[in-house]
Nucleic acid binder design. Structure first.
Lengths: 180, 180
DNA sequence: GTCTATAGAGTGATAGAC
DNA sequence: GTCTATCACTCTATAGAC
């Protein structure tokens, strides 16, 4: 222990489970195993700073694992394909929900509007860029990218509503085929 | 006033804006214009009963305006087309979020699991039925229905994240065309 | 001594229930 | 309005590392 960074994934789980307002300090303390003193030592700004750190952590992961490969990979088609693999793994095959999506739908969107907007905008732009390099016309690439990212978010909603993670993976595979 | 039913749409707006945990009695009182006493007169079961009433209200609307026309309309293709029109109107062209989707993603899902699951299951089944009557093979109909309902939910997430309602309508139109 | 990490009692404000 | 529980947060105290 001793590193603020180690706490962020645990924090993320708490926010994912309960949302921003539902993530009480009691639940945060429970989920991280830290007392309030330690928590406020790491995050003097309180819950807002904790959530910002979690969003930054998520953003960093997607930037490294998804956005950058999509934009700069030598083989564009391969980059798109790898995205679906990475996304399936990240969301634990549909058992984990997208925190940025949760924040987007909720009241929290106002507080984190810039980060929420940037996350999806960058994802769509990176995917559209790969599709374009793969031979699609600019507008078709953009529309397909919106459809794909939207389908991922929607499938997470449906999978969780049905308590049926396989629904997410099936949707992913159909979209993967549609973009191939 | 004086009718519990009149207050449900106002309640729905509060839950939609703040989520279940974020919908404090103060906000509910504010949004409905009712004092705490009146609220507990209408809903002795507290917040849980309020949210259940809102979900039932939403479910009733979709059953009348969307699910039943899809299942029983004489012209199946026309029923599918009408669904997109009704949905576009219901979500105020992307300015309003789906409360059932919000509940599905959040901690509230556990509390309202049955209703949340039934809502999406019925929607997908009704749409698949219309697509099948329109000439699609059973499995293709089912997959397209999942894709369509998922795309609607995902587009609501993206539109709200980008603060760009037109994104929702553009996605709707593309999916309408894909099913036509 | 200083710095960082820990725990937890205690603050006023506000929660939901009645 | 009144109740108790819980909220986010502050503060004090203590520990070991350097």
């Amino acid at each position: 222990m001793g590193e603020r960074g180690d706490v962020v994934p645990l924090l993320a789980e708490v926010f994912r489970s309960y949302g921003y307002e539902g993530a009480s300090l009691a639940r945060i303390s429970d989920g991280t195993g830290l007392g309030k003193g330690s928590i406020y030592n790491f995050f003097p700004g309180g819950k807002e700073e904790m959530a910002a750190a979690v969003l930054a952590h998520i953003d960093g992961w997607f930037r490294d694992q998804v956005f950058q490969p999509l934009r700069e990979g030598a083989d564009a088609a391969r980059g798109v394909d790898d995205m679906f693999t990475a996304v399936g793994r990240y969301f634990l095959s549909g058992r984990k929900v997208c925190l940025v999506g949760v924040f987007a739908l909720g009241h929290e969107r106002d507080r984190f509007a810039v980060k929420v907007q940037a996350y999806f905008a960058e994802w769509i732009a990176a995917l559209a860029s790969a599709l374009e390099r793969g031979g699609r016309a600019p507008q078709a690439a953009r529309e397909l990218a919106e459809d794909a990212v939207g389908a991922i978010q929607g499938a997470l909603v449906l999978a969780r509503a049905a308590d049926e993670p396989e629904l997410f993976m099936r949707s992913l595979e159909r979209m993967r085929a549609r973009l191939a």
